[in-house]
Design a protein around this nucleic acid. Structure first.
Lengths: 102, 102
DNA sequence: ACTATGTTTCTAGAATTATCGAAATAATAA
DNA sequence: TTATTATTTCGATAATTCTAGAAACATAGT
């Protein structure tokens, strides 16, 4: 994963409202959650919620599947995992070596 | 770690310039890097660099130790690890829906 | 004191992001 | 068709963040 991609993903989930959305969706698992349910839990206007969902979607963090009249939001777990892997590799891997060197 | 704290940390390192700084400092290990060396590697104006360092410092991601005329920037590895742990918990969550302290 | 180097503070403009009401669209049912 | 529920798009404003030049401050050497 490129640095700019990682930075973008981090910035997206680095917004309190969006991190709450991510957390809800992670806990919802593969079944996801309807937009309306997220809205009910976060208690924010629909347009604001859509704005944040748009960010998460365009970054590839989540996707939306329509189910009748409702849109179900689902985590793209693979990407989230990739991001954590990047952080671990790029930002934490050298910690042990650094500790040894000290 | 609280959600808002995590979101703030993610937002801080979710800026390409700051993620580059973090990466340099992680690789520098416990010895850290002088501001001037970071500036030389990133090729950005000092005032811009100070701005980003200020963000990282106020979030607790890095600290600065003066060594004669130069300021050495060092990662706060513990906090970074805590953040990765938080993300990992979110990512690999079979978390109980009960602890909803949003 | 003066000079040089390293870094920050001040300041302001540009760019991006967040918020949300109102109107529009999507899907389905009566 | 009309109605209803679900969600988005539009449009405008507010708030935040980014960038960087100029000036100031910090430290050490002469």
């Amino acid at each position: 994963m490129k640095l700019d991609t990682a930075a973008n993903l981090l910035a997206k989930i680095g917004n309190p409202t969006r991190l709450k959305i991510v957390r809800l969706l992670v806990r919802a698992g593969d079944e996801g959650l309807p937009v309306g349910m997220i809205q009910k839990k976060l208690e924010i206007p629909g347009s604001t919620l859509t704005h944040h969902i748009g960010h998460l979607k365009s970054a590839g963090v989540i996707r939306q599947d329509r189910h009748q009249a409702t849109l179900i939001c689902k985590m793209e777990f693979d990407l989230l995992r990739e991001l954590v892997d990047y952080l671990t590799a790029e930002c934490c891997a050298d910690v042990a070596a650094a500790d040894d060197a000290a």
